[in-house]
Design a protein around this nucleic acid. Structure first.
Lengths: 161, 161
DNA sequence: TGTGAAAGTACTAAACG
DNA sequence: CGTTTAGTACTTTCACA
């Protein structure tokens, strides 16, 4: 996971693009497309993983198929100066939070939340609101997607239905 | 891509979880973990792909390593009733938009935008603002992440640095 | 659905330009 | 960095319970 500035050439770009399109493409097939032997491709992929450019390979799944049918963004307003370290701890306590970041604008942080349904979402919101530092939240529910959803594998684990 | 309600048991859940953790795990290894032969695992994975539960396999990449160093959410306000169909067309014209959805609240839509830097982001914003229907935008820049970033492979293609 | 066997591929490491 | 070679492992199809 060495994140130093290693050179990153056109071949690497093409390899990364191929693996993003299909993480199970064989090294030989990638090699044929970029003009390299399969072992050379493997060596580059190993290096891209070591340097932290490629962080993993994941199956992309339709969240609704796993039982996550409700999605929302929650703007979080904190008491006084919000220490990002403490906020990060709070965020990790709630598995339904699939992304969280500090932001510019009126709110201190923005959370992306997935829940089974609206009832579940309300329960998550209540849990978040009683955390220390949290003064106020404003929720924006997602109605429909205008682009095909990106994987977002990290936190969307299957839920029992 | 048949999205019918096919039964989805514990075995399927475990297989999906294993493939989300590592899309290159062999069928034999998954089988050993869930108590199935490799051929049985393959058959289930094939079915999960056919039914649209698993939509693909992708490499997860650190966006900053590909040259995307600026990230923002853009709330979009439209003129009159915003037709989602037309909005979807607009959104597809800008490759920097990595996610887009209609939402509740004051705004009509929320866009997730990635750019190389602030200058590039400003250029994207200007392009979006001159689209028909768009009346106003409010940008929220992402400062830092409180959770490890999820893949989001879809639109983050490598950019030349 | 499950299993095992067999054929074809792919992965990986080693040796070398 | 690149290549080829060679052994091992994985995938895939097929026949069958």
């Amino acid at each position: 996971m060495n994140s130093r500035h290693t050179p990153f050439d056109d071949l690497d770009r093409k390899i990364v693009t191929a693996l993003m399109a299909n993480a199970r493409t064989s090294f030989a097939e990638i090699g044929a497309a970029v003009g390299l032997s399969s072992t050379a491709v493997k060596r580059r992929v190993d290096r891209l993983r070591d340097t932290g450019v490629i962080t993993g390979f994941t199956a992309t799944v339709k969240p609704s198929a796993l039982g996550w049918r409700t999605e929302a963004y929650v703007e979080v307003y904190c008491e006084g100066a919000a220490p990002p370290r403490r906020l990060a701890e709070v965020v990790r306590n709630h598995p339904e939070i699939t992304a969280a970041m500090t932001v510019t604008g009126g709110a201190d942080a923005l959370l992306h939340v997935r829940a089974r349904d609206v009832e579940h979402f309300e329960e998550v919101l209540e849990r978040i609101r009683v955390e220390p530092f949290i003064r106020k939240t404003i929720s924006v529910m997602v109605l429909s997607h205008l682009l095909p959803e990106s994987p977002e594998a990290g936190a969307s684990q299957p839920v029992p239905e």
